[in-house]
Nucleic acid binder design. Structure first.
Lengths: 225, 225, 225, 225
DNA sequence: AATGAATGAGAATTCATTCAT
DNA sequence: CATGAATGAATTCTCATTCAT
């Protein structure tokens, strides 16, 4: 095991031929599989290459080191989350507050449901592995204050004074994310996807009601999800 | 690197002399420090021993392997949480529902505040390291269904039918734990301890209100915290 | 093969026990043997450890990387050269110019004769391997201007104006060193040690004579070597 | 890394088309550049190909392996030295001994001056890389006994008995080569080319004078350089 | 109780070389 | 002629663990 301090985390070379693109995909798929199967600690580049059906050398043509595999995996995952959130935000035009929250929550749950374990590993368990990556890449993600969707809704619908929207919005986001994650961790088994969404929306709305929010739900058309 | 499959996780020998007790403490302190400093992946027994001021050999006199260090650290941490919860439960006798919840939340927040990072590492990040330990040791911890304190309160106060208490209680516990953790992760900076407790209680009560709970708060005396 | 850019070149830990001292010696001996046998390019740490009768791990307890072995070997070699030159310089007190030159040349030749090949490898062939070492360590070595022994003699004996002493002294040193090395490279076979010394002294004196030096050799007693 | 034992060192195919000639030149230029930049140890065929603006595959169309690149580089270099020495030898017809020596020295210095570092690397530092090459190809080079030009002069002019000419001639050649190299290594900065030639001639003549040579310089015409 | 030298399996990474396109 | 994806043996280096002193 050698050190990996200053090594770049971005892919070494972008595949130009179709063949290479497939190779990279196969390697990332194998990485994801093994990451779930045995964790980062026991994840070896040789095992990844073998499972992907290539030699280690090939792996290292595209990835400068082990960490960069995680980085790329997370990058791709973030792309998906980003896209889902973008879509949810677009659907929320002209929709009332609770429905809007529901749309966001549903999008979040659904995107997690695709591969809960992988999501958990990439964004919680191994959150600090290869985290330097994407430092300056634009991230449209619920978590980031700049992109706090619920805060935006609170402001949009005048549910809370913009003074309170920041903090409360953050708490709401924490509730959404952590309940989603909590469900993930227990394997989603106790809830159907719909139930889970309802529970989470319920928690958010309950919290806001208690916290002094005034909902004026005149716009009721256009429920989505 | 030797294998670590079947090795026991419990400390090798309990220190009998005072000197040995101090040695063990020094080693565990060093472990905690380095765990926070570089994570479990980069945590080496030699580094721990050196920081503690002993040789590796000494470390291995008391701990059969690397994992057992984490196990013992977590064990000690759980003792503290256990004690805090025990105390909160005792204080709750004759106290109404909301206050009881508040007591539990406050105890939870306070116990996390001592060393948020270590707590996070032991119970989230490295939750699966050395988890076999204490398999049959009694654990009194919020998380465990058996010991779900809020569920017990729900039943005690007839707030929800025992039929619903299980699920809702779990969601409440998730809310408490995850909001506490979320605050931890952001360094507690945005909230005072009291504010945080209030927000969390607010979230829990709001959720339950929405979720159809009926609070009959005749017992109002004895608020704690 | 991993990179080795910023890694330190100094030994990792000084052996404290006698056993460890012997281990280090054995490792360095093996390194020297294999360096001569197959060159730096084909020198592997595993081979060194095996020949020394230890495991690689032991080697890496004392040396942080492959280069540091070369560095230490060169360091030890320089110590010897240093000592020999020191002795020659001391012997030169009250000795006339030519004899003084002869003493220096003889010391130089003798020190090279011990292990010509190793000397060649360390100071010529692999001169740029691990050269950062000893950057600030005092070196008393013919090569270094500060320690140019012949230049000092030229000044001492007024053989040349101090104006010319620097350049001519450097050329003389080059002659001594390079003829010694040249003899080394051809395995010393064509010369006995004495012949070689005579030839080199002859070259130096001839050069200086032609270059306009005025020898006043009143001090003739005390010839050494 | 594949083995490189039995592989031939001569270029794989001689370029026939103009384009191919340029390709080969580009590759060799890149090789020389990188050899100086990072040494043979860190010289990779991929880097060479990239710098030359071709793919590795193309490189391997013309060179069977990495060593053969060095071999060819050295071959071309030797061609130049050969030619220079040939010219010097021709100029020496009817020229007296000292002038003849000067011509040889000057030719040697000049040929080194073109690219001192590359010369040093090819003929000193990496002298044993790809040395099998040209085993039976005629080499007209100062170093080789067969071609020892100064020895020939010593015999030609009866300066020394042919008995002594061999050894003394070799020492002279060593002086010429090593002083030239020494100047190279220090970057030539301390001498102008003319000064250097003078110093070297001075050293050679001084040595021979001391060594009992009898110069009868009746042929004084035709000094060159 | 404490020491620290020794172990060695195991993991990351490189790079010369081939060959199908 | 040129390309560049793929190969995989070889090498460096780590670190948990043991054990003689």
């Amino acid at each position: 095991m050698k050190s990996n301090q200053t090594a770049s985390l971005s892919p070494r070379k972008r595949p130009t031929q179709l063949r290479a693109t497939l190779t990279v995909s196969a390697i990332l798929d194998a990485t994801a599989y093994l990451l779930k199967d045995r964790g980062y600690e026991r994840l070896t580049t040789n095992a990844i290459a073998e499972l992907a059906g290539f030699s280690v050398g090939t792996l290292y043509q595209y990835f400068p080191n082990r960490e960069s595999l995680i980085a790329e995996l997370r990058h791709r995952h973030h792309q998906e989350v980003h896209a889902a959130m973008q879509r949810a935000a677009e659907l929320n035009e002209g929709v009332n507050f609770e429905m809007s929250v529901k749309n966001i929550v549903a999008a979040n749950v659904r995107v997690h449901a695709a591969d809960p374990e992988l999501h958990y590993l990439l964004s919680e368990r191994y959150a600090n592995i290869a985290f330097e990556l994407n430092k300056n890449e634009p991230r449209f993600y619920m978590v980031k204050p700049k992109h706090n969707l619920i805060e935006k809704l609170l402001v949009r619908d005048g549910v809370l004074s913009s003074h309170h929207a920041r903090t409360k919005g953050q708490v709401c986001t924490d509730i959404v994310i952590s309940l989603t994650h909590a469900a993930n961790k227990s394997g989603m088994s106790q809830f159907t996807e719909t139930n889970l969404v309802d529970e989470i929306v319920c928690a958010v709305m309950g919290y806001l009601g208690r916290a002094g929010a005034a909902f004026n739900d005149e716009k009721t058309e256009g429920a989505v999800v």
